[in-house]
Amino acid sequence: MPYVNIKITHEGATREQKAALIKGVTDLLVEVLDKTPATTFVVIDEVELEDWGVGGLPVELYRQSLRES
């Protein structure tokens, strides 16, 4: 019974994009590990930008530093 948790920043992923992620992850588990789709759980958590950090910086500042380099 696989459980996959996808965390993305809350920046407007559409229902269609989320559905594609759920299908893609489920299909991959079927293909690679021979798991049953009916017992495969995929959860998408959307995290606000101010609650996500990379390299010691809030993600917005991290992205800004990448653009400036």
Rank of each mutant, 00 (worst) to 15 (best):
residue 26 T to I: 12
residue 30 V to R: 11
residue 6 I to M: 04
residue 9 T to A: 14
residue 24 G to I: 13
residue 54 V to Y: 13
residue 61 L to Y: 02
residue 5 N to E: 08
residue 30 V to Q: 12
residue 22 I to R: 08
residue 32 V to K: 09
residue 52 W to M: 08
residue 18 K to Y: 02
residue 49 L to T: 14
residue 40 T to G: 05
residue 8 I to R: 02
residue 8 I to F: 04
residue 69 S to R: 13
residue 53 G to V: 04
residue 13 A to P: 12
residue 62 Y to S: 02
residue 19 A to W: 07
residue 18 K to L: 01
residue 5 N to D: 08
residue 12 G to W: 07
residue 51 D to V: 08
residue 66 L to K: 11
residue 28 L to T: 15
residue 46 E to P: 00
residue 30 V to C: 09
residue 40 T to S: 13
residue 52 W to Q: 03
residue 36 T to Y: 14
residue 36 T to H: 14
residue 44 I to P: 06
residue 33 L to D: 10
residue 35 K to N: 11
residue 44 I to K: 05
residue 14 T to N: 06
residue 44 I to L: 15
residue 21 L to Y: 13
residue 60 E to P: 00
residue 36 T to S: 15
residue 25 V to R: 02
residue 13 A to N: 08
residue 15 R to M: 07
residue 64 Q to K: 04
residue 64 Q to M: 01
residue 31 E to N: 14
residue 66 L to S: 03
residue 4 V to D: 11
residue 27 D to K: 05
residue 41 F to I: 08
residue 8 I to T: 12
residue 22 I to Q: 11
residue 26 T to D: 11
residue 5 N to V: 13
residue 33 L to G: 08
residue 39 T to G: 06
residue 24 G to S: 07
residue 57 L to W: 01
residue 2 P to Q: 06
residue 26 T to F: 07
residue 51 D to S: 06
residue 68 E to D: 15
residue 30 V to M: 14
residue 55 G to S: 01
residue 10 H to W: 04
residue 69 S to F: 05
residue 14 T to D: 08
residue 44 I to A: 10
residue 35 K to F: 11
residue 24 G to P: 12
residue 32 V to Y: 03
residue 29 L to S: 09
residue 38 A to K: 09
residue 23 K to P: 02
residue 64 Q to G: 04
residue 7 K to M: 10
residue 62 Y to G: 02
residue 48 E to R: 03
residue 17 Q to G: 03
residue 67 R to K: 15
residue 45 D to Y: 01
residue 18 K to V: 03
residue 32 V to L: 11
residue 22 I to T: 14
residue 50 E to C: 12
residue 24 G to K: 10
residue 38 A to F: 07
residue 55 G to R: 00
residue 38 A to Q: 14
residue 13 A to R: 08
residue 56 G to M: 05
residue 69 S to Q: 13
residue 62 Y to C: 02
residue 5 N to H: 04
residue 63 R to G: 14
residue 68 E to G: 10
residue 55 G to M: 01
residue 42 V to G: 04
residue 67 R to T: 12
residue 34 D to P: 03
residue 43 V to G: 06
residue 52 W to L: 01
residue 58 P to Q: 00
residue 13 A to G: 07
